[in-house]
Each structure stands twice: as C-alpha cells, then as structure tokens.
Amino acid sequence: MTTLVICVDRSGAIGRKTSVPMPVAGWEAVRSLVTDVGLADPEDASVNCILEALRVARELRDEREESAVAVVSAAGDSRVGADRSVAAQIDALVERYEPSSAIVVVDSADDERVMPIVESRLPVDGVDRVVVRQARDLESTYYLLKQFLGDEELRSTVLVPLGIALLLLPALLFRFSAAVALAGVAGLLGAALLYKGLAIDEYVADVPERVREALYAGQVSVVTYVVAAGLSLVGGFFGVLAATETGGQPDPVEAMLFVYAAVPWLAGAALTAALGRLLDELIRDEGIRSHVLNLPFVAVAVGLVVRGFAGYFLEQERVIDQFTFAGVTVAPGQRLAAFIVAGIVVSIVGVKVASDVGADALEDVIDRDGTEGRRGEGR
C-alpha cells in the first residue's frame, strides 16, 4: 500500500527553469531537483512546495508507511495542453508505483485546479497548501475571497445590495447633496442587512404558501387579519391627524399624541386578529392552546397600559384636559395607576382562563385515552 506524494506545478516553471524531464520521482531525484530549482530562481515558491513534499514523504516513512515522492510540472503552450501533460505524467507515476492513494502538495490556487485530474486516477487522502510566510496574508485573503465568491447565498446577500448601492450613488449625487446621497445609500445597505439578518426574507417567502393554505382551509383568521389591517390603518391615520392638528408642539409631545390616538385602534386590531386565531382553534376540535387563548387578554392589557402612559404625559404637558368622573377631577398619577391596575387585572384574568381551559383540555385528553385503552383491552 503505497502513498504517492505529488508536488504539482501547473504553470510549468519547474520544467522550464531546470530543463529536467518530467515527472521526477524518488527521494534522491527530488532532492536534487529542489537544489536545481533553488539555484535557478531562489525566490520561486516552487522550492517550498518541493521541500514540503519531501517533508510529508519523510513523515510517512517515519510512521512506517510506504511512500513515494514525485514532482509533476506541466508542459504545453495552452491550458488544455498543460493539463493533458499533467494527466500523462500522473498516469506514468500510477503505472510505475501502483499507489493506493495520493497526497497532493500545491503552492497556489492555480495548481489546485488540477485536483480533478488526480482524483480521476487515484484516491486523494489530502491536499497540502504551502503558503510562504511573507505572502501568507495575501494568499489567505485570496482563498477567503475565492470561497466567498463560490457561495451563492453570500453573493446574493452582500454583493447584490452593494452593487445596487453603487449604482444608486451617482444618481443620488447628481440629484441631491453628498450628505443626502450617502445617507440614502447607508440606509439601503442597512435595510438589506437587517432584511437578511433577521430572516425576513424567509418569512416573506413563506407568506404566499401560508395565505394559500389559509384560503383553502377556510380559516376565519384570514378575514380577521384583513379587518385588523384595516383597523391598524385607521389608527395610524387618526394618530397622524392628532399629531399634526396641534401645531408648534415639540416632537415628543407629537409622538405621544400619535400614540394616544392610535393605541385604541391598534389594540382593537390586535384583539380582532387574536379572536380570529381563537376561532380557528375552536373549529379544529383539537383543543385550544393556552397561548392562543391568552392573546386577546394580552392585546387589551397592553393597549390599556400604553394609553395610560401616553395620557399621563399629555396631561402633564396640559395638552389634554384632566379626566373628570362624577364631578371629581382625577389627578394624572391616579389616572395612570388606574390604567396600570386595569391592564394587570386583565392579564391575570387571561392567565387564569388560559390555565383553567388548558387543564380541562388535558383532563379530557387523558380521559379519552383511558377510555380508548379500556376498550382495546376489552376487545
């Protein structure tokens, strides 16, 4: 069982500089060859490649494994001719040593392209890439760039947004100022990275299939989701109107006005969507999951708390009048506390209802399984 250690020179530099017939095989012949190559061109990386092949062969010999070392250098005026000469030399080595496997030693990405030629003739146990220390950073960068360009997903994630940004930059500079153009390009790149990083693309890709399944299955949630989207638009519309009607207000106050006016509609949208999910669970006759049952209560509780805080800030700024109940004016802090307590109470009721219904459903499942088991034993 012989392992053939092959130093591959696809460029043909070794053969041209030494005028030695290829392939060169055998320990002493390869040692003599590395001296000739070093004397002809001490700066040639092929010297390190040949020495690495000798080192690998010596390690195999020290491990009591039979090995043979050889150097293959291409010859020919074209790439096809060079590769065919490499294939002929490898055939000669296989015929001479009848190896069971091979270890290929290369010093560049170009030499590594002959790997299919070697693998078509004998099994390859490993590839040893020799990188000279002075050029290690450059070679490592080249290999990383080559691997990056070979990954289709990485190309589409990074190169496509970058290319679009570079195409838009001249147009934006022509139409707007440099600051606006750079801000637009940065925003585009940021949105593209977030779109991919948060896996929004996977969710968007699944949306048509989910909608198709929901339509075919006749789910009530399809209608409630449309109603929820409409309520959200109405809430956003009234929020913008509320924020723009009072001119001259600071930006934080306008933001609170938007939240105060939009929250009831947004909470209603969330409640509508949650009720649709709940109705789908009831129609399936498979029991209601506790988190689905708790969704409507969570929507109402969050809406109460958010509106309470928004109203508190607006009352403090005298933007809205203080709440009056039965002729008694309620202080802003008391009003906020009432909204918080109401939200907590609603959430507790939701947790209690969800836990009770979940426990009842679990008992029904256990009873049904026990009844079916007894019937099976009776049969």
Rank of each mutant, 00 (worst) to 15 (best):
A274R: 04
R289E: 14
L278V: 05
L304V: 09
D280H: 01
V305K: 05
L293F: 09
L295D: 00
R289G: 10
V298D: 07
D280M: 02
V305R: 04
L278A: 04
R307E: 15
N294Y: 08
T272Q: 03
L293R: 03
I288P: 02
V305D: 07
A301T: 03
V306C: 06
V302I: 14
V298G: 09
A299V: 06
L279A: 10
L275V: 15
V300R: 07
D280A: 01
E286M: 04
A274Q: 11
A299G: 04
A274P: 12
V298H: 06
V306S: 09
E281Y: 06
V302F: 14
F297C: 05
G287F: 08
V302H: 09
R277V: 01
L275I: 15
V305G: 06
L282C: 05
I288F: 04
R289N: 11
L279M: 11
A273P: 09
T272C: 12
L275Q: 02
R277C: 05
D285H: 13
V305F: 12
V306A: 13
L295Q: 01
L293G: 05
E281L: 01
R284K: 14
I283H: 04
N294H: 08
V306E: 10
L278H: 06
F297V: 07
L279E: 02
L279D: 00
L278M: 10
I288Q: 04
D285M: 10
G276C: 03
V302Y: 14
V298Y: 12
A273D: 12
G276W: 00
P296Q: 10
L279K: 01
A301I: 02
G303R: 10
V298R: 11
H291M: 09
I288D: 06
L275C: 13
S290L: 04
